[in-house]
Every structure is written in structure tokens, then in C-alpha cells.
């Protein structure tokens, strides 16, 4: 507070005190201006642009024509689009719960059973999150590589024989990529649950223990429900994260072989920047946006999730 006092001009009397509102009301809105300007320029305007572009088609004469929902109908008839949807569903349905489960268990053991080693474990398990995703992708490509990769060699010891590269087989490529995503992002779920567990009221845990609830029963009946807000945040972030999946796939398989691991990110990239078809790229962008908005609103309405969570960008 002393800072505040010295900051105010000396010799000021009560009569001179200006309230926040009043004649300064106009200028205080300037506080909102920078963030709003960035939002309009780099979020709102681009979104309006993709909507417009998705309703147009560039003709052979180079002139844009309004085609209504024509691009959408064409996209829905593209078998690759359905492969993308299947892969996105697999990605979300596998990565989100697995990362929650492993991350949650690790967090539980770290928070409840370690003292001196707590900081060490928390930091180490989070390291994959801060490892550059392009590095992660190239290292895992090497792990999966046939002949000189370690996956084939060591899985053989466990009795699992990989006849060919997991990335080169259309039947397994998407799962091989999902494993990489789980490896990279489990530490994020872990740290979110660490924060949740650390903030649990200790009386509740103590009371439950005295009542005879121990170990797994304590976790199941008391802790899991109390961590629901963290779980909801992770679900929300997981779905947005799934929809923006790109670097791992682009760098490891490029969406192949024969589109078997194609995701929205690689499909939009291919259509817009490789094939130069911005109308189809825009149509896919709108579909991704609609899915993200729809799924988020559904969680807010049905699960009471809040958009105050954290944004995982990759």
C-alpha cells in the first residue's frame, strides 16, 4: 500500500478525488482496446473470411462464384474426409482417457506418497511436454524404424513381433501416432491432477481414512469425484487439442500411407497449401470450427464444464 500512497500526487485533498467513473469513463475503455483489436484482426476476421471462402468456388476464369453449400457437399462425398473423422474420433477416444488415467495415477502416487522426491518426479514427467514436437516426432520415427529402430528389437524380447514398420502399415499408422501423443501429453494431465490433488481439503481425505476408506477405495469414492473439475478441463482441452493435431502426423507420416493417418490438420494443409484449393481448405476449416464449438458447448451445457481451463497448444 505504501507504493500506492507515494504514487498518488502529493497535496491532494478529498474534494479533488476523482472516481473511476465520470469524466474519465471514455478513456478507461482503452484498457480493453489492445486485446479486442488483436481478437478482431487475427481471430474474428479470419473466421469470417473462411466462412465466406467456403461458400465460393474459383472458376476457370479466375472469378469467384457463389456456390452455396456446394463445397460442403463435395467434402462430404470425399472418402478421405470420412477417414479423417474416423482418425479424429480414435485420437480423442484413446488419447484423452489414457492420458487422464496414467497422468492421474502418477499424480496420485507423487502427491500422496513422496516428499523429497516430489519436485523431481513432477518435473521429469512433464519434460516431454516442453520437448519440441518436431524433435519428438523425429525421435519416435527413429524408434519405429524397421531394422535399426529400437521398438522392433525390444518388443521382440517381450514376444511381440513387428513384421513391418508400425508407421508404414495403413492398419496401424494412426495407433502408432496416438502412442506418441500419449507419451508427449500425459505429463500435462499429471501436472493438472497434481494441482487438483494438492488443493483437495485435507480434512476430507483424513475423514475418509478414519472411516476406513483406504487406498483404491478412497481414490475411487472420494478423490475421483472431487477431481471432476480437473477432469472436465482436461476433456475440454483434449477435444480442442485433438482437433488441432498436426505436427506429429505431418512429420511422421504426412497423413499416409494412403491417407490412413490423415487428420484435419494435415488435410487442411494438403488442400490449402499443397493442392492450392483454398475453397476446400476453408470448408474443412469451418467444419473443424463447428465441431470445436459444438463439442465445447455440449460439455458446458451437459457437464457444466467451464471455459476457464487451460489451452494446450501444439
Amino acid at each position: 500500500m505504501s507504493q500506492t500512497l507515494t504514487a498518488s500526487p502529493a497535496g491532494r485533498t478529498l474534494a479533488e478525488i476523482r472516481p473511476h467513473r465520470g469524466r474519465r469513463q471514455g478513456t478507461v475503455y482503452l484498457f480493453l482496446l489492445p486485446a479486442t483489436a488483436f481478437f478482431i484482426g487475427f481471430v474474428a476476421y479470419p473466421i469470417l473470411w473462411v466462412f465466406d471462402e467456403s461458400l465460393m468456388r474459383a472458376g476457370s476464369d479466375g472469378v469467384r462464384h457463389f456456390v452455396g453449400l456446394g463445397n460442403y457437399l463435395a467434402t462430404l462425398q470425399d472418402p478421405i474426409f470420412w477417414l479423417v473423422l474416423r482418425n479424429m474420433a480414435l485420437w480423442g477416444l484413446i488419447t484423452i482417457p489414457v492420458q487422464m488415467l496414467i497422468g492421474g495415477l502418477i499424480a496420485w502416487f507423487i502427491e500422496r506418497h513422496t516428499q523429497q522426491w516430489r519436485g523431481f518426479f513432477r518435473t521429469m514427467f512433464f519434460l516431454p511436454v516442453v520437448t519440441s514436437v518436431s524433435v519428438v516426432s523425429l525421435v519416435w520415427a527413429q524408434i519405429y524404424a524397421p531394422y535399426y529402430g529400437i521398438a522392433q528389437n525390444y518388443l521382440q524380447v517381450l514376444g511381440i513381433t513387428m513384421t513391418d514398420s508400425a508407421l508404414g502399415n495403413p492398419a496401424t499408422s494412426i495407433y502408432a501416432l496416438i502412442v506418441v501423443n500419449i507419451w508427449q501429453w500425459t505429463g500435462f494431465s499429471m501436472l493438472m491432477y497434481v494441482a487438483g490433488i494438492a488443493n483437495l481439503p485435507s480434512e476430507v481425505l483424513d475423514a475418509a481414512r478414519i472411516d476406513g476408506a483406504r487406498g483404491m477405495r478412497l481414490a475411487g469414492s472420494v478423490v475421483v469425484p472431487m477431481l471432476a473439475p480437473v477432469t472436465k478441463s482436461l476433456l475440454l482441452l483434449g477435444i480442442i487439442g485433438t482437433l488441432q493435431t498436426f505436427p506429429i502426423v505431418q512429420l511422421m507420416t504426412g497423413g499416409g500411407p494412403s491417407h490412413s493417418s490423415e487428420v484435419f490438420g494435415t488435410d487442411i494443409f494438403r488442400q490449402s497449401f499443397v493442392l492450392g484449393d483454398t475453397n476446400t481448405g476453408a470448408t474443412l476449416s469451418v467444419i473443424v470450427l463447428a465441431l470445436a464449438f459444438g463439442l465445447t458447448l455440449a460439455q458446458i451445457v451437459f457437464l457444466g464444464a467451464r471455459l476457464g481451463g487451460r489451452r494446450a497448444a501444439r
Binding site: V28, Y29, F31, L32, A35, T36, F39, F42, V43, Y45, P46, I47, W49, V50, E53, I240, L243, Q244, T245, F246, F264, G265, I268, F269, S272, F273, T278, G281, A282, S285, V286, V288, L289, A292, F293, T296, L307, G309, R311, A313
Partner: peptide, 30 residues
């Protein structure tokens, strides 16, 4: 707590729902 800010806040928050994948094309053009 300026009047009207809650609405603006809610609008700004919609950004959290926007995946980068849907923005790269328009941003590239812009």
C-alpha cells in the same frame, strides 16, 4: 467492472475453442 465488459469477455473466450488448424489458411492469406 466497466459496463459491457462481461459480454466482451465472453466473446474473447470463444478464442479458446478455435483450433489452430482452422485458422492457418485465413491467417496465411491475411
Amino acid at each position: 467492472r466497466l459496463p459491457g465488459t462481461t459480454v466482451l469477455y465472453a466473446v474473447l473466450l470463444t478464442t479458446l475453442m478455435v483450433p489452430m488448424a482452422s485458422l492457418v489458411l485465413p491467417l496465411a492469406i491475411l
